[in-house]
């Protein structure tokens, strides 16, 4: 109360001015027809403009939820595709019994750190064990292309070995002809990788699409990787030296999907049985 009195003593003139002026303005707007119209008109414009700004802001806040929603929808569509499902089609009693079992599922993730400058690059994603990420899972881009393979996981994060890594060996095939080889990176250009072990009798043209072969259990078949930019056969070699221009630019990758192969354990069992 004393503070209030002191405040009034110091700013009494100003406070009285504000109060009386406010009363006057209220009276003007209440009892004068013309001023009332002007006021309500201006107020309408002002509140409409303010509402627009608020809408804009909330739209921005809503973007995070929209991204998650779209990720979920994309995952659903990706899981619907044939390359993500296991066909159990067989002929039985002269009838084709057709059913598709889910084989690949996808987990949406955001890149939290990335590098492209070293010869052994890695990324970090904001998804980890509690989201179902395990080592050796593949990582693909949100639109096209492959990103890498999960190496280590923690509860909330995982580290991904980028395809831009000197040890990258990805089984890739030419779309159409089906010849397959191994995709490697020579450590120089983050937009180009090298496709090795395509035999020299393969029919090949510059511009052919390179996709995942599906022979490893890391990526589904048919994920687009890039386009053949140049192909030549060194003298005395039996294989092409092919440069592949990647579809995705790993220097600005932001949203990715982690590939979860539901039948990986069966493959591992087979591998173990073969080793014994």
């Amino acid at each position: 109360m004393r503070g209030l009195l002191q405040l009034f003593a110091a700013y009494g003139g100003f406070l009285a001015f504000v109060l009386l002026e406010a009363v006057s303005l209220v009276l003007i707007v209440q009892y004068n027809h013309r001023q009332k119209e002007i006021f309500s008109n201006s107020w309408g414009l002002l509140s409409a403009a303010a509402e627009r700004q608020v809408d804009k802001a909330t739209e921005y806040w809503g973007l995070k939820a929209r991204v998650l929603e779209l990720q979920a929808r994309n995952i659903k569509l990706m899981e619907e595709r044939d390359n993500a499902r296991f066909s159990t089609a067989v002929f039985r009693d002269s009838m084709q019994v057709d059913s598709l079992a889910p084989m690949f599922t996808f987990i949406g993730a955001n890149v939290v750190s990335n590098s492209i400058v070293s010869t052994n690059n890695s990324l970090r994603l904001n998804r980890g064990e509690i989201h179902g990420i395990k080592p050796h899972m593949g990582v693909i881009g949100s639109d096209e292309g492959i990103v890498g393979i999960v190496r280590e996981t923690t509860n909330h994060y995982c580290r991904v070995m980028s395809v831009l890594h000197s040890q990258t060996r990805i089984k890739a095939a030419l779309r159409g002809s089906g010849y397959f080889g191994t995709l490697t990176w020579n450590g120089s250009d983050p937009l180009r990788m090298q496709l090795e072990a395509i035999p020299k009798h393969a029919e090949l043209a510059v511009g052919d699409t390179v996709q995942t072969s599906g022979y490893s259990q890391v990526f589904p078949k048919g994920i687009l990787i890039g386009r053949v930019e140049s192909a030549r056969i060194e003298p005395g070699e039996n294989f092409y030296t092919i440069s592949v221009r990647l579809f995705n630019d790993l220097s600005k990758v932001e949203y990715v999907y982690v590939v979860n192969n539901l039948m990986r354990e069966e493959h591992e069992e087979l591998d173990q049985a073969g080793n014994e």
């Binding site: 001015f17 009363v23 003007i28 209440q30 004068n32």
Partner: peptide, 20 residues
């Protein structure tokens, strides 16, 4: 003054501003 000019608040607002 406003009461006779039938413009309640206009002269009052101006006077308060002038006084301030």
């Amino acid at each position: 003054v406003d009461m006779s000019y039938d413009s309640l608040g206009v002269h009052a607002g101006a006077s308060v501003l002038t006084a301030y």
